[in-house]
C-alpha cells in the first residue's frame, strides 16, 4: 500500500489568521505513519490551531494539509478519516457510555449486532468492560477520558488527534494515563498526534516532538534531540530548564561572545580549588541560594564576574542539613565543553 510510504500528515506552507491575528505562520511539517507525535508549546503558540486544522474544524488561510497524500485542507470534519479526543471529552450527556462509543458506527449505518461487538472490544481496550450502560455523569474524570478515547478509536481512524486530553486529571492519574495511552497506541498502531503544553509529558510519550512558539514551528525532533540540542534559546528554556549565558560572561568562560545554553544538571560544583581538565569549562562564584527538593537540590551560584548559574545536584549522599551548609560558600563550577549548545536569537 502506498499509504505506508506516505507521511500520515504533511503541512505545506500552512498559515492561519483569525482576522488580523496570526495563529500559525508558514508551517511545514511531516508526521510519519504510526508515530506518536507531540505538538508542544505554550498557550497561544498555534499548536491547537494546527490540530483543529487537521481535524477540519478550521480551514487554513493558505497552504495545504495532506492526509496520506490526499489534500484534505478544505474537507469538512465528517469527510476526514481522522478522529479527536477533546480536552473536555465532549461526551454526549444524554447517551449511555455504550451509545457514546458506538456513535461513529451508528451514523455510518453499521448494523446493531456489529456495533455492540465492537463497543465491547473498545471497552476492553480501555479497561472499562461492563460500563456500557452507565451515563457519562456517573463516571470519574479518568473514566470519561477512556470513554472519549474509545469513542474516537472505534472508527479505526488513520490518525488520532488528542487535544491536551490529560490536562484535567491529577498528577498520579495523568502519569498512569501517559503509560496507558502509549501502550494503546502501540496496540492499535494508529498515528497519534498529541497536543500538550507540558514538556515533561511530551518528552515521556513522544516518538518525535514539534516545538511551537508564536505561531511558528521552531524545532522538530526526537525528545533526546530537542532536549540535548535545542535549536533556539526558546526551546532551551521551554523544554527543561537551561542556563543562558551571553555577552561578557560568555566571553570570560568560553573566550567567545556567542550565546550558549547549559543544562543545570550538567554542571558540577566543587571546592574553589578544584582542578579543571582541558576538556571542561569553569566558572567561580559564591552559592547564594539553596533549594532542597528531596530527590535533588537546586543551587543558585552568583559568578564572581557578574551573572548567575543554576546548578542541580542529586542528593546521592547528602542530606538537607549538608546542602544548606553550602550557602555562602565560594565554589568552582565546571562542565564538559561538549555540553554547551550555542543558540541563536529567540
Amino acid at each position: 500500500m502506498t499509504s505506508q510510504t506516505q507521511p500520515a500528515i504533511r503541512f505545506e506552507n500552512v498559515s492561519k489568521y483569525f482576522g488580523n491575528v496570526r495563529a500559525v505562520e508558514q508551517a511545514n511539517l511531516e508526521i510519519r505513519d504510526g508515530e506518536f507525535f507531540s505538538l508542544l508549546g505554550p498557550s497561544g503558540s498555534g499548536k491547537t490551531t494546527c490540530l483543529r486544522m487537521i481535524a477540519g474544524f478550521e480551514t487554513p488561510s493558505s497552504g495545504h494539509i495532506y492526509l496520506y497524500g490526499q489534500d484534505v485542507s478544505n474537507l469538512p470534519p465528517y469527510e476526514r478519516d481522522v478522529n479527536t479526543v477533546f480536552q473536555d471529552y465532549a461526551l454526549f450527556p444524554h447517551m449511555s457510555v455504550g451509545d457514546n462509543i458506538a456513535y461513529g458506527l451508528m451514523v455510518k449505518g453499521v448494523p446493531k449486532p456489529e456495533r455492540i461487538k465492537r463497543v465491547d472490544e473498545m471497552l476492553e481496550l480501555v479497561q472499562l468492560a461492563g460500563y456500557a450502560d452507565r451515563k457519562p455523569s456517573q463516571l470519574s474524570g479518568g473514566q470519561r477520558q477512556r470513554v472519549a478515547l474509545a469513542r474516537a478509536l472505534i472508527n479505526h481512524p488513520k490518525v488520532l488527534l488528542l487535544d491536551e486530553p490529560l490536562g484535567a486529571l491529577d498528577l498520579k492519574l495523568r502519569q498512569q494515563m501517559q503509560v496507558e495511552l502509549k501502550a494503546i497506541q502501540k496496540r492499535v498502531g494508529i498515528t497519534f498526534i498529541f497536543v500538550t503544553h507540558d514538556q515533561e509529558e511530551a518528552l515521556t510519550m513522544s516518538d518525535r516532538i514539534a516545538v511551537f512558539n508564536e505561531g511558528k514551528i521552531v524545532q522538530v525532533g526526537t525528545p533526546a534531540e530537542i532536549y540535548e540540542h535545542p535549536a533556539t534559546a526558546f526551546v532551551a528554556g521551554f523544554v527543561g530548564t537551561s542556563n543562558l549565558v551571553d555577552g561578557e560572561i560568555a566571553k570570560r568562560i568560553t573566550g567567545r561572545e556567542t550565546r550558549f545554553s547549559i543544562r543545570p544538571e550538567k554542571i558540577h560544583m566543587g571546592p574553589a580549588d578544584t582542578k579543571i581538565e582541558a576538556d571542561s569549562y569553569s566558572a567561580d562564584g559564591v552559592v547564594r541560594d539553596v533549594v532542597y527538593l528531596g530527590l535533588y537540590t537546586r543551587y543558585l551560584v552568583e559568578l564572581s564576574g557578574g551573572g548567575d548559574l543554576v546548578v542541580v545536584e542529586q542528593n546521592l549522599k547528602t542530606t538537607s542539613m549538608d546542602v544548606l551548609k553550602v550557602k555562602g560558600q565560594p565554589v568552582r563550577l565546571h562542565w564538559k565543553k561538549e555540553h554547551i549548545r550555542e543558540v541563536g536569537g529567540s
Binding site: 481535524a55 465528517y78 474516537a152
Partner: peptide, 15 residues
C-alpha cells in the same frame, strides 16, 4: 450546552 459536543459529532462522521 458544551459546544464541543457538536464538533465531536461532526468529527465522528455525522453530517
Amino acid at each position: 450546552m458544551q459546544g464541543s459536543q457538536i464538533e465531536a459529532s461532526m468529527d465522528l462522521g455525522a453530517n
